[in-house]
Simulated assay, not measured.
Amino acid sequence: MSQAIGNTALAYARVWHHVDASDRILGKLAERIALVLMGKHKPIYDPSVDCGDYVVVTNSRNIKVTGRKDQQLLFRKHSMFPGGLKETPYKDMMVKNPDEIIRHAVSGMLPKNKLRDRRLERLYVFPSYRMGILGGNILRSWDDGTLPSDWDPKTPLLGKIPPNNT
């Protein structure tokens, strides 16, 4: 019988999740990503402990918003100098920096505490399907939540790249 009391190192092991953002709603996707980054899907969740997983989001260019948010949503940043407010509409941000839209939404859903920046560092967002070398780390895809049948830890899991998607 084991004499270990409490949570073991295996319980805190971080898993890499892959999310395809094609035709997904921004708010619902950001909520789900925030839960995984916090570790709320694990039975050992503790608000004061950073036990979340890594999340890799691909196809951030194809994210959808509901209602008229694509016309009304503004992203604001300030340089802290007088008159330094910069406002960028949603449509311009989709063309210029689509991964920042998902990062901003997830950041708003995380608790505002000292763990927030550390959790956001585990979020990787890519505008297209190509994720580079990080594809080899992915263990779970959110399609069904299980490991793929042909999973091999020695080969990168890049998935099936669509022929016309770059």
Rank of each mutant, 00 (worst) to 15 (best):
P156H: 11
E31C: 10
D143I: 13
P43L: 08
D150Q: 14
Y129H: 13
L35I: 07
A34F: 00
V19N: 00
A21R: 03
L74C: 07
F126R: 03
P127Q: 04
A21H: 04
D50Q: 04
R130V: 05
M93G: 02
I63G: 04
N137I: 02
V125W: 00
D99H: 08
D143L: 13
R118F: 11
I102K: 06
T146R: 14
V56Q: 00
K160Y: 12
I5T: 12
D99T: 09
H18F: 10
S79W: 01
I161Y: 06
G132Y: 02
K77M: 08
L147T: 14
Q71T: 09
V19P: 03
D53W: 02
Q72I: 07
K77Q: 12
N165W: 13
Y54D: 03
R116S: 03
P162N: 13
I133R: 15
Y90V: 01
V125Y: 05
S107H: 14
S141A: 05
S128H: 14
K69T: 04
I63H: 03
K114E: 15
P98Q: 00
V49E: 13
M109V: 03
R122T: 08
T146W: 05
I102F: 04
D117V: 08
L74N: 05
M38D: 05
P47A: 11
D46R: 15
R14W: 02
D144V: 08
E121M: 15
R140K: 10
H78M: 03
T88W: 00
V106N: 05
D53M: 02
A105D: 03
D150N: 12
